[in-house]
Amino acid sequence: MIEVKQISKRFPLKDAKLVNKVANDDPRVKGRFFNVLNNVSFHCQQGEVLGLLGANGAGKTSILRTLSTALTPNSGHVLYEGLDAHENKLAIRKNIGFLSGTTGLYERLTGRENLAYFAKLYGVKDNDFKRVLDELTEQLGMASFLDRRFSDFSTGMKQKIAIARAVIHEPKVIIFDEPTTGLDIAASEVVLSFMTRLKEQGTPIIFSTHHLAEVERLCDRVCIIHQGEAKFEGSIDELNHLTGHDILQKSILSVMSNNVMTNPIAQDVPA
């Protein structure tokens, strides 16, 4: 189980022009700091898919980077099976499969070399690497380009290798940031089918997306992030029931515009 307990994260605003530009509009700007996350809490159970939803700049990527331990929160905790992620970074990282929209791979290496490199970094044994690579090659359809240089790949090929990189060490938790952005229908379907397979295997997945069809297809529950705060956490049915809409898009917009505070964990955890 993954528990996110009241995490907050702020960045210094060094650019005076930026301060002046956003200070009047954005409540997250406090003095010379930008509070990108404010007491965000949610959880994800074993075998569950949790969708992080929200507008651009809402703080979804910062949350996912914090979950991956790339960012350390200023306050709050991220717990994996009760273990604090930021106090046990190296151990936790071995169990996380993270993919962000900006994650790149090495262009001068082949797809296979890229995967072998990360497998070694994650301490995967040679035999296990061969087995997992064979499985992933088949599931993601990578056989035709696996031994070509990464720089020669199309966007879809790159994303397939990036996904394979994220799961080459057979992680216990999957964190994907907009995994289908920029992909065509066929490539998107491969990614979504792969995520479905992971879900069926009982791997918890937290992912962000702007494609609501993906949310309806994959997510057991959703968490709506608005201006650095978690505004709702629950199932799609609960969301629609709460807002009175039967269309997911309208429900999300309703939560974002009404600033409805409906996060049970945030309310339960003492400050």
Binding site: T103, G104, L121
Partner: peptide, 14 residues
């Protein structure tokens, strides 16, 4: 610039 640093930073490497 190439976005590869993030992959490296989340790997279990000190």
């Amino acid at each position: 610039e190439r976005g590869t640093l993030e992959s490296l930073l989340i790997a279990p490497v000190s």
